[in-house]
Design a binder for these strands. Sequence first.
DNA 1: TCTGGGGTCCTAGGACCC
DNA 2: TCTGGGGTCCTAGGACCC
Length: 431
Amino acid sequence: MSRRIALVDVNAFFCSCERVFQPRYEGVPLVVLSNNDGCVVARSAEVKALGLPMGMPWFQMKDQARQHGIVAFSSNYTLYGDLSARCMRVLGQFVPPEDQEVYSIDESFLDFTHQRRLDLTATGQAMRARVRQWTGLPVCVGIGPTKTLAKLANHIAKKRPEWNGVCDLTTAGGATIDTTMAGIEVREVWGVGRRIATRMLPMGIRTVSDLRAADPRRMREHFGMVMERTVRELQGVACLELEDMQPKKQIIASRAFGTPVYSMQELAESIREYMGRAVRKLRLQGGQAGVVGAWIETNRFREQDAQYSPSASIKLAVSSDDIATLTHAAMALVRGIYRPGYRYVKSGVMLLDLTDKQTQQGDLFSAVIPAKDARREKLLGTMDRANARWGRNTLGIGSAGLQLRPAWAMQRGNLSPAFTTRWADLPVIRH
DNA sequence: TCTGGGGTCCTAGGACCC
DNA sequence: TCTGGGGTCCTAGGACCC
């Protein structure tokens, strides 16, 4: 019994989020920028049509932007995260919970294998209509017998207007599929990146249909088992299952500074703040870290600058989710790698060797497993609750976040309001 | 002047074991 | 003169994803 998997993906997600509450930008060429307004990370259809690439530094694009009237927004992850959650909840109404995989902030797999009678093209249109009406976001739907083919079908639904936003490869004719695949570059296949696409070219593999016709074992010899799986999936043999939410295996928090930093003092402030972010994620998934890492960086794009980008990590004697312990470890690491005289533009912390908090690894050289300090646990829990209730930096470690806007803080020149998550930013309808 | 911030998995090679 | 065969674990680097 062949499977029927749908992939639903929001069109130009970040740009579409900006338009939901600011419809005056409908039809206007939009981009959304990365933190510090650095690079373009999302483009509206109008900007894609101009041929401006993803990932381009904004300052290099400013002339063209002026010329074409492109509007740039700073990243508003509060808004995107909330709209994403709403969108995923709407899609979840179409399948039982175990048949939905939220794959990324703007994509979800839905498994319709068990709903045999359903007309999937009609269901796809129903999903588009409901998401549009309830969240304001435009989505496209791809359907196929494997995840890789569903991804490809979604690509087709987006690029070819004749599919009207829903492409079902499980019912499309063989000839249609052949000609369509022959017209798509192999780079568009899920799992084929820039490197591999380049290496495939001399092998005579240029389009999706070339790759689908390739021998999976030969592809494995050249590119490894991941690529073998990809080829089989293209041929309609399901190798990838829907996955449930797994706890993270590592947690990273890092940011480029709004302005360069020279002193240990300022690096320390940044490390404290980023560790706060990392520990929040850690505690949210009920984990503890066995290894702490930290790094600082100079600007690798400035050739005239002396470069210095050291990193260090340390294994804790006992895994921890205590913000004080973890911050202390990261601070010691940065003090160890810091050298004065460099122009630092970024720092970061990493939590590794994550385990579930319930499984406490004892210390070989102490007779008993160290008992958790009950008062300490209570204090940390109280901090969590205070921060959940009154805002993220209500209680923190040392001077983290005390300064309202440190000089090195992220720059966001054109940030839209948090329309859905802050009372003061709630849209008002005047009549 | 200004160039993001997260993640995952696989593989090869080295160190070590018997 | 001749120098085996089978493993595990860890790490760094590479590839990919959004």
